[in-house]
Design a binder for these strands. Structure first.
Length: 939
RNA sequence: GCGGAUGUGGUGAAAUUGGUAGACACGCCAGACUUAGGAUCUGGUGCCGAGAGGUGUGCGGGUUCGAGUCCCUCCAUCCGCACCA
């Protein structure tokens, strides 16, 4: 009986669905294992063969862990809020919810064909109100928390308010943006509005004016990566820097823990380094430079430097054009020039400023500071090489020790003081830290390391600054001027943001007429007519009823894409809970993700934010762990293999072997090409302009195409969908082949040619079972042979070892070797084949179920079987074939009894007739015998 | 510029602790079979050479009895970051 994969796969898909084979529950007596794939965004294009690669690997591992006796949580869901659905809605007027549902249905259909062991009863969608109710709840929790740097954790805001009432803020140790000091008495006289303004500077999510990339044409804020050459990536509209009132997340509070937490994670070094780099820790000092003018609102300018040892080399100060003090300190004669410089700078995105390094610009402000040690007057410049968002937005320029400062000083002919002993700075700054400091009073004669310590000590003594650690990580802007996202659970009472209590959540996304911003520039939710909060009925009501007494306007922004994906792995543990984000029992049992598989493109986005929220929820006692994803594998991209035909100047199509070299390659649909050979008739029918194509063929009359490895894309006609391959070869073959292609983390080209080999392997396996015309496997239920057992146990060992180190590709090779050997041994022993089927079932679950059943086992029980256990006894050999090398070169092999000692082996090898040929009568200088492995003779 | 990763046959790759380089597949060559199939089976296939043999893991050095594996230098490709004071 033939292997009919279509019928078999359909049968088992139905069986698994009907029997809820993969449904899981908490079993406190069983050890848990949590395997998770990164949340897919359900795009309209559906899946190509690259997408399921990670899903297959995680599914293989999940199934393997189940067979090893673990209680495995392996869920799937959708990150279903997002821009593409909204853009589509703007274009077509269709509600994003509708297209999102359609896309999810298509994804599900495709996923179902591949035989995944997901517990679909745990599916979550970030756009469903049952889910985002809890995203809104987490937002509230962040709003109601502050970061205590003494206990080094987030704590309830109520405790902070109590402190303010008793002691003011002088003794409070917090991560905050509130430089002013107030007493308890001050606090108690503050109005409610003033109190809230103060609290905003402490809350972990807060409203603040922040600089953003604002695109007026699109009516929204854009992320840095959505802006290219100061125009929007989408549509090419101008983008400007704008100060906007936005919700932000005080992720800076977690900078140090996000950094140190990386050390215990089993992630790749490259991802950890990207996060370290993003967090950007640097140690140094903040120093205050007193302004010469005494009429400014602040007496001094604070700079951050990592080289306080070079303070005697300061020749000027530079502020970012956006620095809040600029307008105030600029002298009248420079006011116009400064205003113009600021205007030009505001038109550039931050990215442009950074890419435009060569072009040195700056503007003198006329203001001066006093050098704290020399007493000299130092000019203050503004320049866009100083970033408003890093440090204090101001630097002390030391041209002799910093290349940017050197370039700036040279460009504007500012004198450069050399404070390094015997270092030439005429051509460039000296940036190494090994120079001895000179011309620097109390720092003279010290090297950087000692000088930095000494400088900080003196600066602190003088009270003009202190040692400080700075992080590049910025607070994350959390508002989006978009429709298709989570609404904030926030209304405004006299300008004061108030959150809506959890018992009244979710605040459901309102209906709008159109998904564009309003005419007066409000976000799309400004179009909603029913978008006001009634604090009496605790419901959303018509805007017309807003009276600012009991009915108030709701927040018009929505949350960004990363909100829902920052905690979804928690929801899977208890996906339908209506009274909590997840029950304590569920999160305590399932804990964090043991194995997380997904692309590396989320290195500094999702993976950082999810870690932030996890640490926060841990601090507040909701979950018992601090890191969401313990082990992570980043699957490589599967690239397409494009095919080309070549057209010459006369319009003829030249086969690859006949090229003259001046032909133009043209992408041709890969479905028209088999093994590089073009289906000529198909090509002519493909497009009307090819109908009368003339060909110059190979001598054997075929047309051979060229090929190239490129990203899969529609425009290159090289997209391969999993659906077609499941249709042609079956899901089991596709699963095995995707794993067989190569190491999971490596990018590799997709080449359908190789799939035949895997398909043959499964057919060969099928034949081992001697299935008769009644569909029953004719197997020998007697004792297996020694060879059978040896093959089996060799395979058990290899497959177990390989799976434990996530080497999915070599497992498939080992299954092939196993089946080849059993075929050669003409093995049809039931015990052996049952064990093989169990081992194979994570890779090829449908055929495994079928063979298991046909061999006389109970249907469906292969998923609950136990993974075979390796027994070394079956591999013990009585004789070992030693490779014999001369000077490290293998010359011949000799079979010797395994019991021989090192001396005996040496003796046996040296006296063998084979060895005589290579010894040529000489006595070897040395003989190395590695027992059981190798013999090396040194001549 | 800085950081990370990767370089092995015609192709995808394997070699887990330094111990037979190229397992397993694809492709290719030769053959068998015939319900002519994307079927199955047999043999061959790193390169040079008729052969003996030589040579071979990006290049060049080094350590070692022995190096794809360890060390140094360089080259190439990919990814990330890039005025971060």
């Amino acid at each position: 009986m033939e292997y009919n994969f279509n019928a078999i796969e359909q049968k088992w898909r139905k069986f698994w669905a009907d029997n809820k084979t993969y449904k899981v529950f908490e079993h406190p007596e069983k050890e848990k294992f949590y395997v998770l794939d990164m949340f897919p965004y359900p795009s309209g294009a559906g899946l190509h063969v690259g997408h399921p690669l990670g899903y297959i690997a995680s599914d293989v591992y999940a199934r393997y862990k189940r067979l090893k006796g673990f209680n495995v949580l392996h869920p799937m869901g959708y990150d279903s809020f997002g821009l593409p659905a909204e853009q589509y809605a703007i274009q077509t007027g269709q509600h994003p919810e509708k297209t999102t549902k359609e896309n999810i249905a298509r994804y599900r259909e495709q996923l179902d064909k591949i035989g995944f062991s997901f517990d679909w009863d745990r599916e979550v969608r970030t756009s469903s109100p049952e889910y985002y109710k809890w995203t809104q709840w987490i937002f509230n929790e962040l709003f109601d928390s502050w970061y205590n740097t003494t206990t080094d954790q987030a704590e309830p805001i109520a405790a902070l308010i109590a402190l303010f009432e008793q002691e003011g803020n002088a003794t409070v140790t917090a991560v905050h943006d509130h430089p002013e000091v107030f007493t308890a008495a001050d606090w108690n006289t503050y109005s409610e509005l003033k109190k809230e303004e103060v609290l905003q500077n402490y809350r972990l999510t807060y409203l603040a004016d922040s600089w953003v990339n604002w695109c007026p044409a699109l009516g929204t804020v854009l992320a840095n990566d959505e802006v290219i050459n100061s125009v929007s990536e989408r549509g090419g509209h101008p983008v400007e820097q704008k100060l906007m009132r936005q919700w932000s997340m005080r992720i800076k509070a977690y900078a140090e823990r996000l950094l140190t937490g990386l050390n215990e994670l089993e992630w790749t070094d490259s991802i950890k380094d990207m996060q370290r780099n993003w967090i950007g820790k640097s140690k140094g000092a903040s120093v205050f430079f007193s302004l010469s003018q005494k009429n400014a609102s602040q007496p001094s300018i604070e700079v951050f430097t990592t080289r306080p040892d070079t303070i005697f080399g300061v020749s000027f100060l530079v502020l970012a054009p956006e620095h809040p003090l600029v307008d105030e300190i600029t002298t009248p004669e420079f006011a116009e020039a400064v205003a113009e410089y600021k205007r030009v700078a505001s038109l550039k995105s931050e990215r442009d400023r950074q890419s435009d390094v060569k072009n040195i610009t700056g503007q003198l402000t006329g203001a001066k500071v006093i050098h704290p040690f020399t007493g000299a007057e130092v000019d203050i410049w503004i320049a866009d090489y100083v970033l408003a968002t890093y440090g204090t937005g101001a630097v002390m320029a030391v041209p002799c020790g910093d290349q940017r400062d050197w370039d700036f000083a040279t460009h504007f002919s500012i004198p450069i003081t050399n404070i390094f002993q015997d270092k030439d700075i005429s051509e460039a700054a000296y940036t190494e830290k090994d120079a001895v400091i000179a011309n620097s009073d109390f720092l003279n004669g010290l090297e950087a390391k000692a000088a930095i310590e000494k400088a900080i000590e003196v600066i602190e003594q003088k009270g003009i600054g202190k040692g400080k650690t700075n992080y590049r990580l910025r607070d994350a802007v959390f508002s989006r001027q978009r429709y298709w996202g989570e609404p904030f659970p926030v209304y405004y009472q006299g300008g004061i943001p108030k959150t809506i209590a959890v018992e009244h959540l979710p605040v459901i996304l309102p209906e709008v007429e159109k998904y564009l911003p309003t005419e007066d520039g409000q976000p799309p939710l400004g179009n909603a007519t029913v978008w006001a909060w009634d604090t009496v009925s605790n419901t959303v009501v018509e805007n017309s009823r807003i009276d600012n007494q009991t009915i108030f306007p709701l927040e018009l922004n929505t949350m960004p894409g990363w909100a829902g994906s920052s905690w979804y792995f928690l929801r899977y543990t208890d996906p339908t809970n209506a009274s909590e984000f997840a029950s304590k029992a569920a999160v305590d049992y399932w804990k964090n993700v043991d194995l997380y598989i997904g692309g590396s493109e989320h290195a500094t986005g999702h993976l950082l934010y999810a870690r932030f929220w996890t640490k926060f929820l841990f601090d507040r006692g909701y979950i018992p762990f601090e890191e969401p994803f313990q082990k992570m594998i980043n699957q490589g991209m599967i690239l397409g293999r494009s095919s080309f035909v070549y057209r010459n100047s006369e319009g003829q199509y030249i086969s690859k072997g006949k090229l003259a070299g001046n032909e133009i390659p043209i992408h041709v649909d890969i479905s028209l090409v088999d093994n590089d050979q073009l289906d000529i008739e198909g090509f002519k029918n493909w497009r009307s302009d090819y109908a009368n194509a003339e060909f110059i063929l190979e001598d054997n009359g075929t047309y051979i195409c060229g090929s190239e490895v490129e990203k899969m894309s529609k425009s290159k006609f090289n997209v391969q969908t999993p659906d077609e391959l499941v249709e042609k070869f079956g899901a089991d073959t596709l699963r095995c082949y995707e794993m067989f292609l190569g190491p999971i983390e490596q990018a590799k080209p997709w080449d359908t040619k190789g799939i035949n080999g895997v398909s043959n392997f499964l057919r060969k396996l099928w034949r081992l079972f001697n299935i008769d015309e009644n569909g029953i496997a004719q197997l020998d239920s007697g004792e297996p042979t020694k060879d059978n057992l040896k093959t089996l146990h060799k395979t058990i060992k290899k497959v177990t070892d390989d799976l434990e180190r996530y080497s999915f590709n070599t497992c498939v090779s080992n299954f092939m070797i196993c089946v080849n050997e059993l075929t050669e041994q003409k093995c049809n022993n039931k015990y052996i084949l049952d064990q093989v089927v169990i081992m194979l079932s994570p890779y090829a679950p449908h055929i495994a179920e079928e063979l298991w059943q046909r061999s006389g086992n109970e249907a469906g029980t292969v998923t609950t079987a136990l993974f075979p256990v390796f027994n070394e006894e079956y591999l013990v050999e009585s004789s070992i074939e030693y490779p014999v090398s001369f000077n490290g070169k293998m010359r011949f092999k000799i079979a010797l009894a395994a019991t021989l000692s090192v001396k005996e082996v040496e003796q046996a090898v040296l006296t063998s007739s084979e060895a005589a040929k290579y010894l040529e009568g000489n006595t070897p200088k040395k003989v190395i015998v590695v027992p059981g492995k190798i013999v090396n003779i040194v001549l």
